[in-house]
């Protein structure tokens, strides 16, 4: 490796990397500077924490923040909890395992909005589920499940859509565990639980964390599922940001920027915390 080659490599990287760095720093920079009063669309640019004070003092904002944090955590954990056993089950191919893994991956091909529509259609008052429940005699009258207050619908959709990603990430690392290690453990008399705790979990920790982080970020920034299937009594952060921008005239930009910065913070720290706790849990189990 010479300096010359490094220079050449960086030159080659430029066309791909420059747009990413420029775009992202401009966008994030725009959000941060608008949140503190620069690039104003109304009035002069001036440093001000007015928008921060305005947003952080709103109950609605904190409800949205906690709501997004909660759905993101739940979605990430549930997706991984569901994907993990399936990945273990499909570790070694057997007749029919290809079919199953194709079925698991199918939701990747379905657009989020389409999924939300299919779901709402399925659970609506006159939808299939209600018609079935009533006709089978489980309930006397249809149940109202659309836009439920506890966001069960949103979490179901998140898990439905993100479980395949978790599966893809985890299955690779599960397959990479050598049979020899597992056989050796079995030879030493380790039961399946011990093998899971002592060998499989620690060896797949990285992919577990990757899946959790990815799903947490996607779910924390969710707009479409929330808009179509979410509760009407609370906004997700992304929805709150869009609404803040739209409803408050020229000041809306600055206040939306505050929400954006908080959402980025949630994505970053929230996903790190979830990943960190997983690491801790796995370490503890190993003992």
């Amino acid at each position: 490796m010479t300096n010359n080659q490094t220079l050449k490599a960086y030159l080659l990287l430029l066309p791909g990397l420059l747009p990413i760095i420029a775009f992202m720093s401009l966008v994030v920079g725009m959000a941060v500077s608008q949140s503190i009063g620069f690039f104003n669309f109304s009035g002069a640019d001036q440093f001000s924490i007015q928008s921060w004070r305005e947003i952080l003092s709103q109950d609605q904002f904190w409800r949205a923040f906690l709501y997004s944090a909660r759905t993101a955590t739940l979605s990430a954990i549930l997706s991984v909890l569901l994907a993990y056993p399936i990945a273990l089950w499909l570790r070694r191919p057997f007749p029919g395992s290809d079919l199953i893994s194709a079925m698991i991956k199918a939701p990747i091909l379905v657009h989020g909005l389409v999924a939300a529509f299919l779901f709402v259609n399925f659970i609506s008052f006159q939808g299939f589920l209600n018609v079935a429940l009533v006709n089978l005699g489980f309930t006397a009258s249809p149940m109202r499940m659309q836009n439920d207050t506890y966001a069960i619908g949103v979490v179901i959709l998140q898990v439905w859509k993100n479980m395949p990603f978790a599966f893809l990430i985890i299955v690779g690392s599960v397959r990479a565990i050598g049979d020899d290690i597992l056989d050796a453990a079995r030879g030493l008399g380790a039961g399946w639980l011990a093998r899971l705790r002592r060998i499989i979990l620690p060896l797949t920790l990285r992919s577990l964390q990757a899946a959790l982080v990815l799903i947490f970020i996607v779910a924390a920034g969710d707009y479409s599922f929330q808009a179509v299937a979410g509760p009407t009594s609370v906004n997700s952060l992304a929805q709150f940001m869009v609404r803040t921008q739209a409803d408050n005239g020229a000041n809306g930009w600055n206040e939306a920027a505050v929400v954006a910065v908080m959402l980025m913070g949630l994505s970053l720290f929230g996903s790190l915390i979830v990943a960190g706790l997983t690491q801790l849990a796995v370490r503890r189990m190993r003992r």
Binding site: Y10, I20, L26, M30, I217, Y223, A260, S267
Partner: peptide, 29 residues
Amino acid sequence: FVGKSIIHLLTLVPLIIPNFISAIFFSAL
């Protein structure tokens, strides 16, 4: 080359910024 792993991470940045943030502040830009 030097810094390859950092560059690798940098290319993934667009994936970790929530879509609606990029969208709104790109439109502001």
